[in-house]
Structures are given as C-alpha cells and as structure tokens.
Design a protein around this nucleic acid. Structure first.
Length: 157
DNA sequence: GCCAACGTTGGC
DNA sequence: GCCAACGTTGGC
C-alpha cells in the first residue's frame, strides 16, 4: 500500500530524516485515532510513503520514504516532559502507536499548489476540502502520478 | 493572524 | 446519545 504522511519541517524535515541514524525516524506525536488506526491496522513493512511538509512556507511533497517497522507504542505518550504526553496512557494500555519511517529519496519539492493543478490527483485525501488527517492512504494511480511529477521536476531542475 | 473545517470533551 | 463549546489543524 501507499501513504502520505505529514510532518512539520520545523519539527522533522526531510533533511532531518536524512540525517537521522539509518535515515529512519519513529513517527512520534500522532494523536488522532484515525491516523493511529492506519498505522496499527493497515500499514505494512515496506509500504511507500510520500513525505509531506505541512504548516510551512512551501507545503508539498519533499521526498519518498517507506514504512520501516510494524506498529509499536509511541514512547512520548509516557513522557511527562513531552508535548505529546498523554496522562491517560499507561504502559499496560498504551493508547498511541507509531511506525518507523525510513528515507528512500529526497526529491525536489512538489508544491501543494502544483498538486492541486493535476486532474489525476484531485482524488487524493490530502486535497479534499477540510481534510486535516496527518496520514492518508494513497492509491497506486495517485502514487504513480506523484512519482511522475517528481521525476519531471527532477528532469527540469 | 485569520478562519474554515473537523475532532474531542463533557454536561445533561 | 445529543450537542454546544472548545481546541486543533493547516493553508492562505
């Protein structure tokens, strides 16, 4: 399967991912049940990920990654010093799960603005009106179309 | 900083 | 279980 995962570059950018040990990061901080359920129930090792920069000057897809672990408890839910601390979570009954995400390739930024111009991408969850989910499934057709655009960008860069 | 859209909370 | 109030997201 394929996914789009949002990250605020101020928190974890594509370059931060590239610089992480094994170019892999635990996807900490998801506190939405729908997004959690995607990680827990639907993600598989090796699934393709569009790494998306959100809440920044130039929102858009910044690289390709892949799912690098199965789901396990997000340690930040247990850490009172973390902004992601959840007082209702316990080690016996963790509430929030995450997966590890590994960089495949940084790409030239594919801006949200350009994605909106592509008829074959209008079905993407990311582009739906009012959509705020930080993790959304991506169809093979959408994945292929995005890769096409990323390649085209690379060729003309 | 604005604001639309959505999710969560909590009283009843 | 309803629903109003509140909080959050995230593009602009």
């Amino acid at each position: 399967m394929f996914w789009l995962m949002k990250s605020e570059p101020a928190t974890c950018s594509i370059d931060d991912l590239a610089c992480a040990p094994q170019a892999t990061v635990p996807w900490v901080g998801v506190r939405n049940y729908q997004a959690r359920n995607f990680m827990r129930d639907a993600m598989c090792l090796g699934d393709g990920v569009l790494f998306y920069h959100s809440s920044c000057a130039e929102p858009g897809v910044a690289g390709i990654a892949r799912v690098a672990s199965t789901a396990y408890p997000d340690p930040t839910q247990f850490d009172p010093a973390s902004p992601y601390f959840d007082p209702k979570a316990t080690a016996a009954a963790p509430r929030w799960l995450l997966v590890d995400v590994a960089l495949v390739q940084k790409t030239p930024l594919l801006p949200l603005r350009r994605m909106r111009e592509q008829p074959e991408l209008t079905s993407m969850g990311l582009l739906q009106r009012g959509s705020r989910l930080s993790i959304t499934p991506v169809t093979r057709a959408e994945w292929d179309a995005v890769l096409q655009l990323l390649v085209a960008d690379g060729a003309t860069a």
